[in-house]
């Protein structure tokens, strides 16, 4: 870990201003940042401790909820309103990490988690995300945990968050504060980026821009499922995960939201999949058609080829469960 300057911010605006220039990072839960700093994957020169900022509450806002950026994952998962109205979010959070990590990791930090790509974590390997232009050792290497959708020649890493996948299905919005005092709201759809030629740029955040809250729109109701497939029964990152929110209308699928984890550089959602399902009578054939749309552009890189059939099968099972159809 390189030496750094440490400053405590006392107000959000102050924090944003402190971080406007230089290699500065906000630190809150620290569960991913310190992990990466120890390996010198992250080498900030300045840390702005934001843990004392007043962003720790979950409050009702219209029909929805406003979640402070510092709300720990545990508290968010256990919140009565989240459990009742957004169970897919509770479930996603509970499927992630461990009890200890969820107690520390924050809502804002979770969105900014960096990939678990082995080569990103190993500073002696080539990685365009860690060191732009150096190459990608995951392509042609051991890429079991890597992406099958939205990849580029520069990067095939995945976003590791479970929480963000559920939030993507819920159409959350991310509220930020910029160093010049402006408040912004980013739809989660636009918040994370695909790797393209610049996999080092992972979100739309500009320097110093501080996540202050996440807004959840009005509850969607319906059946909400978060299914995570992984190599251990617990405490492992997703190979494939699916957040689903489905309503039924007289035996037909009403509305449907589907977001996918473990398959792309960002929480993945393809509205065409949902459109193909809405208004239809659920059946194995229909689910297969949905998977065809989802996976039309899917590309395996060898070790992760299995994710394509796995995503197909898991999608069918989730849809069957959500619609009450037995396959």
């Amino acid at each position: 870990m390189r030496p750094f300057d440490y400053t405590r911010a006392t107000a959000p605006q102050e924090a944003a201003a402190m971080a406007a220039a230089g290699a500065t990072k906000f630190i809150a839960g620290g569960t991913n940042l310190l992990d990466l700093m120890k390996l010198q994957v992250e080498t900030p020169e300045k840390l702005v401790d934001v843990t004392r900022l007043p962003m720790k509450d979950i409050v009702a806002e219209g029909d929805g909820l406003k979640i402070g950026a510092l709300v720990p994952n545990s508290d968010l998962a256990a919140d009565e309103r989240v459990r009742r109205d957004y169970p897919v979010l509770s479930r996603a959070l509970l499927a992630g990490a461990s009890g200890q990590l969820r107690n520390k990791a924050t809502t804002g930090g979770n969105l900014l988690q960096r990939t678990r790509c082995y080569y990103f974590y190993e500073t002696s390997a080539r990685c365009n995300k860690r060191e732009p232009g150096s190459g990608c050792d995951a392509i042609g290497g051991f890429n079991r945990i890597h992406a099958i959708l939205g990849t580029s020649d520069a990067c095939i890493a995945t976003h590791p968050s479970d929480m963000a996948v559920a939030m993507r299905a819920l159409d959350a919005e991310i509220e930020t504060l910029t160093p010049d005092g402006a408040t912004k709201r980013h739809p989660i759809a636009d918040f994370h980026r695909l790797p393209g030629d610049t996999p080092n740029v992972e979100t739309v955040l500009s320097p110093g821009e501080l996540i202050t809250a996440v807004h959840l729109p009005a509850p969607l109701g319906g059946t909400q499922i978060y299914r995570k497939v992984r190599d251990r029964a617990s405490y492992a990152f997703a190979l494939v995960s699916i957040a689903a929110v489905v309503t039924m209308d007289a035996g037909k699928i009403g509305t449907v939201r589907l977001a996918f984890g473990g398959v792309a550089h960002k929480p993945w959602r393809n509205e065409a999949v949902e459109a193909a399902l809405a208004g239809e009578t659920p059946s194995a054939a229909l689910f297969d058609k949905a998977a065809d749309i989802l996976l039309a552009e899917a590309k395996g890189f060898g070790e992760n080829d299995f994710k394509i059939p796995l995503a197909r099968r898991t999608l069918a099972a989730v849809l069957a469960e959500a619609t009450g159809v037995s396959l």
Partner: peptide, 13 residues
């Protein structure tokens, strides 16, 4: 009172 991993937090915090 909350359980956390003490390796992933700075003492100064």
């Amino acid at each position: 009172g909350r359980r956390v991993n003490s390796c992933l937090t700075l003492a100064v915090m």
